[in-house]
Design a binder for these strands. Structure first.
Lengths: 228, 228
DNA sequence: GGCATATTTAACATAACTGTAACATTGAAG
DNA sequence: CTTCAATGTTACAGTTATGTTAAATATGCC
C-alpha cells in the first residue's frame, strides 16, 4: 500500500493529516521530531514525505538534506509544510530538494490533490521515462523533448503543458483543465495565457518539417492530435 | 442549473454573496441558521454549500457532520467561511470534511474562483464515450465525428446538437427543447435558427452516401432516426 | 542590485461560427 | 387544385474565438 510519512510536532495537525490521508486510501506513519523521523524513515521507506519546516529539534532543511543524500530515500518526493509568513525562508528551501510546499492552514482537499500529483509524477516517470507521439519524443527523466530527432527548446510551462497533453494523446482538454493541471487550482491566470503558450509550443515543435500536432477544438480547447 | 446553498447569519454578507453568486451564473439559496439550513438542504440538494463557521444556533462543524452523514448530500463540496482568528479552531474542523475555507473578509473574486475550482473537481470524472448511431460515430473524448468512416467537420453548435440527439436516438425533440439543452435557458434565439443548424448538420453528415439520419417531425421537431 | 529568462497580459488581426432575413419548397387539409 | 403553414435553403452581416505580436511583469541567477 502507498505510505505517507509525516514528520510534524503539532498534535492537532497530526490527527488532521492522519484522518485525511487515511480517508484518501493511504497508509499513514508519523514521527514527532526530526531525529526520530530520520531513524524511522530508513526503515519505513515511504512513498512520500510530509515535512514540517519548523521542528522542535532540527530544521526541515536538515531532514530534507538527509533524505536526498540517503541511497534508498533519494528520490522520495517531499512536501514541506510551513506556517504563514515562513514562505520567504521556504523559497530557499526548494534548493534543498523538496518537491512542493503548503502553507498552514491548508485545506485537506488541497493537500490530497498535491499528494496525488506528486505520487503520479514519481510513479509515472519510473514506468515510462520516454513519452512519444508521432515524431515527438519526451524524456521525462532528462526533461528533454525531441521533434524529428532534433531537440526542441521549451520553457518550463511549455514542457508541462506538452507533458500533460502527451499523457492522454487525442483527448481534448479545456483551457480550464489545462490550467488546473499545469498551474494548479485557485490560480488567477487568464485563459488566454494558454493560447500564448500553445503558440510557443507549436513554434518549438515545428523545426524541421510540418509537425502540426496540437489541434484546436474551437470553443472546447486543445488536444495532441494531428490536424485534420 | 448549478445551485449554491449558503448558511450564514450576517445579513450584509448574505446579500453580498447573493449578488456575486448570481452574477457568476449560479442559483443562490440561503438559510440564516443551522437547523433551518439542514432542513432545507435535504430538499434543495445543492451543488455546493457555503457554510459559516459561527452560526447562531449550532456550529458549522455540526452542519458539516450532518451533510457528510446524509446519503444524498454526502459528496457535496463544502466551503467554510471563518472570521479572522478562527483559523486555529478551524484546523480541527477539517476533520469534519469540508473541502476548502475562506477567511473573512474575502474578495468576491476569490470566492467565485474557489467555487469554480471545487465544482470543476467534482465533475472532472471524464465521461468519455463513443456514441454511435447507424454509420455515425461520435467520440466525446477527442471531439471527432465520423460518418461512414470519414471525418465530418462540425462547428461547435452542430456538434452539441448532434451529441444531444445521439444521447437519445429516436426520440423527438421540439425546437424549444433543443434550444434549452444546447443554448441554455433564457437565451433569446429564434426557433428557426435551429433549422439552419440542422441543415448544416445534415450537410456535414452526407459525405459519401445518403445518410439521412435526422428526421423532421412536422410541427413537432427533430429526431435522430432513419427516414421512413 | 542588475541581468537574463520566463511568464502574463494586452492589443490587434484573422479566421470561424452564428443568427437572421428573405425566398423557395414541401405537405396536408379542404 | 389551391392555400397556408411549416420547413428547407441560401447569403450575409454580426459576433465570437483564436492567432499573433509586443510590451509589461515576474522570476531566478550571478
Amino acid at each position: 500500500m502507498t505510505t505517507i510519512f509525516s514528520i510534524e510536532d503539532e498534535e492537532a495537525l497530526v490527527s488532521l493529516l492522519e484522518y485525511n490521508i487515511q480517508s484518501a486510501g493511504y497508509k499513514f506513519q508519523h514521527s514527532p521530531n526530526g531525529y526520530d523521523g530520520m531513524m524511522k524513515l530508513q526503515k519505513s521507506k515511504p512513498d512520500l514525505i510530509l515535512l514540517d519546516w519548523m521542528l522542535p529539534d532540527i530544521s526541515g532543511t536538515e531532514v530534507c538534506k538527509f533524505v536526498r543524500s540517503h541511497k534508498d530515500l533519494k528520490s522520495t518526493p517531499i512536501i514541506m509544510l510551513t506556517a504563514k509568513g515562513e514562505e520567504q525562508d521556504l523559497l530557499s528551501g526548494f534548493d534543498m530538494g523538496c518537491d512542493d510546499y503548503l502553507t498552514k492552514p491548508f485545506s485537506p482537499a488541497e493537500l490530497i490533490a498535491r499528494i496525488k500529483a506528486l505520487l503520479r509524477r514519481s510513479t509515472d516517470s519510473s514506468q515510462d521515462a520516454v513519452l512519444s507521439y508521432g515524431n515527438i519524443k519526451m524524456d521525462t527523466g532528462t526533461h528533454r523533448v525531441y521533434c524529428c530527432e532534433e531537440e526542441a527548446k521549451l520553457g518550463p510551462r511549455e514542457y508541462r503543458i506538452l507533458e500533460f497533453l502527451m499523457r492522454h494523446p487525442g483527448r481534448v482538454y479545456s483551457r480550464q483543465q489545462i490550467l488546473d493541471s499545469v498551474w494548479g487550482t485557485n490560480v488567477y491566470v487568464t485563459d488566454r495565457t494558454i493560447d500564448v503558450h500553445i503558440r510557443r509550443l507549436r513554434k518549438a515543435l515545428s523545426n524541421t518539417e510540418e509537425c502540426k500536432v496540437i489541434r484546436t477544438i474551437r470553443s472546447s480547447g486543445y488536444s495532441l492530435d494531428s490536424q485534420t
